[in-house]
Every structure is written in structure tokens, then in C-alpha cells.
Amino acid sequence: MLVAVVALVLCGCLALMVAPKRRPQTARHWEAQAQLVRDGRVIIYWRPGCVFCTRLRMRLGSLRSQATWVDIWSDPEAAAFVRDINGGAETVPTVILPDGEACTNPDPVLVRSHLSMAQAA
């Protein structure tokens, strides 16, 4: 019993440590698409509570502000777009690169390289 309580407390502490301090600013689906066309901005479709999205956000570091983030849970059009790309599944993170290529749960190194190129331009 004591072991279970200690494990629960440790899991709670870990969850607090990795949870975002504030909810990131997000754009609407069509605004993000317009920015992609106009400025070549990377779009990252995400949802709260997604560990893969948190991993990507953390691995991007300061470059994360160079991308346009779209929360699929607060934008039904974004959710429909992600389902269309992923064969009916709302799999996130789904990233749209400046050339229009869609990547589902991509390696953060790939996304960083595109964001770095955009920042250098």
C-alpha cells in the first residue's frame, strides 16, 4: 500500500514538472494555412495532454515560437483536417512543412531544421 502511495506521489510530481506552465497561443486552422502560403511558416497541429506534442515542443526549444501551433480540440476544422491527412485518426503532432508536406509525429530534428532555415531567411 505504501509503495503504491509513493508511486502515485512521484507520478504526480513528474506530471507537474513536464506540464506546460501556461497554455500556448494557438491559431485557427485557416489562419495557419494562410500563414503557410504567405510566409512559409511551419504548422504544428497538436492537442493538450499529448505526450508526443509535449516532447516536440520541448525539443524545439526557442524555435517553437517560429511555428504556428493549432489546437485540434479547440478548432473542429483543424481536427477534420488532421483526420483527413491521417486516414481518419486525430494523430498529433501533425506537422505541415513549408513545402506542404505533412508529417505525423515527426522527428524533432526534422522540424528544427525547417524552423532554423525559415529563421535564417
Results as ranks from 00 to 15, higher is better:
V111H: 10
L97G: 05
Q119L: 13
V37I: 13
W46E: 06
R59Y: 08
R64F: 09
R22E: 07
A102L: 01
E77T: 10
H29M: 02
V70G: 02
T104V: 15
A89Q: 13
V92A: 04
F81K: 11
R64D: 08
R47C: 05
D71A: 03
A120L: 14
R41D: 15
A118G: 12
P98M: 11
A27P: 03
W69V: 00
D75Y: 08
W46I: 05
E90P: 00
L2H: 15
A15E: 06
P93H: 08
Q119E: 14
T91D: 07
G100T: 08
I43M: 13
A89Y: 05
T91V: 09
D99E: 13
V9D: 05
A118C: 03
N105S: 12
R23G: 06
W73M: 07
V18M: 11
R112H: 09
Q35E: 15
P24R: 07
V5R: 13
H114I: 00
V6K: 09
D75K: 01
C11F: 12
V37N: 03
A89L: 11
V5N: 09
R28L: 13
L115R: 10
Q119C: 08
A7Y: 04
T68W: 07
L115V: 12
A4T: 12
D71T: 00
A118K: 09
H29I: 03
P20F: 10
W69M: 02
